[in-house]
C-alpha cells in the first residue's frame, strides 16, 4: 500500500519524531497526536490506514482504552492497530499474548519499545497488506 496514511499517538514528542522519520523515509504519510482525545479526533478526521498507539500516555491505560474505542466504532474497526509500550507486562500477564483478544486488547500487533526500524516497517507493511486483502487487521 503505497502512500498509506499512518497515525501515531504517543505522548513522547521525541519518540514520535523517530517513528515519523522512519515511516516518512518509506513514503508513508504520517499524522501525529499526543493524547487519546486528540488521537480520536484526528483519526476520525484523517481516516488513516493504520494507527500506532502508545499504551501509557497521560493515564495508565489510555492506549488500551483507545484501542477498544476504535474497535467498537463501525467506521474505524477495520483499521489495523499496532501498539507500542515501554512496559511489556503488568502483574505478570504478558500483553503480547493477549494481543488480538477482542475484549481485553483489541490490537493487531503488540511491540516493545524501543523497536528496530526494520521490525516496525515489516509489521506496518504486513498489516497494511492484510488490510488490503481482507479489509481488516484482526
Amino acid at each position: 500500500m503505497v502512500n498509506a496514511k499512518i497515525m501515531i499517538v504517543d505522548d513522547d514528542p521525541d519518540y514520535i519524531k523517530v517513528i515519523k522519520a522512519i515511516l516518512e523515509k518509506e513514503q508513508y504519510t504520517v499524522v501525529t497526536a499526543s493524547d487519546k482525545t486528540e488521537g480520536m479526533e484526528k483519526i476520525r478526521a484523517e481516516k488513516p490506514d493504520l494507527a500506532i498507539l502508545d499504551v501509557m500516555m497521560h493515564a495508565w491505560q489510555d492506549g488500551f482504552e483507545m484501542s477498544r474505542q476504535l474497535k467498537k466504532d463501525p467506521h474505524l474497526k477495520n483499521m489495523p492497530v499496532l501498539m507500542l509500550t515501554a512496559v511489556e507486562n503488568r502483574t505478570g500477564i504478558g500483553f503480547k499474548s493477549t494481543a488480538g483478544d477482542p475484549t481485553w486488547l483489541p490490537v493487531d500487533v503488540f511491540l516493545d519499545k524501543p523497536i528496530e526500524p526494520d521490525v516496525l516497517l515489516a509489521e506496518v507493511k504486513k498489516l497494511l497488506s492484510n488490510k488490503a486483502e481482507n479489509g481488516t487487521g484482526i
Partner: peptide
C-alpha cells in the same frame, strides 16, 4: 521510556 527514546534517536 527515556531509554527507548534515547536508543531510538541514536539508532
Amino acid at each position: 521510556s527515556h531509554l527507548a527514546t534515547i536508543q531510538s534517536c541514536l539508532g
